[in-house]
């Protein structure tokens, strides 16, 4: 049987160190360009989808 975790935040990528905490892998980046790049790479690696929280933070969610 195949087991897959879904509807789960795989990673958070943020430009603001104070805004994200907790149990998910957090990637701190310096600017918007790096934010998009890192988020895209993580999404590709995990087959997840990038969501924009509109506060300088992206999350990658596995649907």
């Amino acid at each position: 049987m195949e087991i897959d975790i879904k509807h789960n935040i795989v990673a958070a990528i943020t430009m603001h160190t104070q805004k994200v905490e907790g149990g998910v892998p957090i990637f701190y980046v310096k600017d918007k360009e790096e934010l998009v790049k890192v988020a895209t790479y993580i999404a590709k690696a995990t087959l997840g989808m990038v969501h924009d929280l509109d506060n300088g933070t992206y999350i990658v969610v596995k649907h």
Binding site: A39, H51, D52
Partner: peptide
Amino acid sequence: DGPMLIVADVRIMNIGLETV
């Protein structure tokens, strides 16, 4: 609306990447 994909006033999903 920002990252939110909208069709006929229904917010369908949050699309983070501008390229998408």
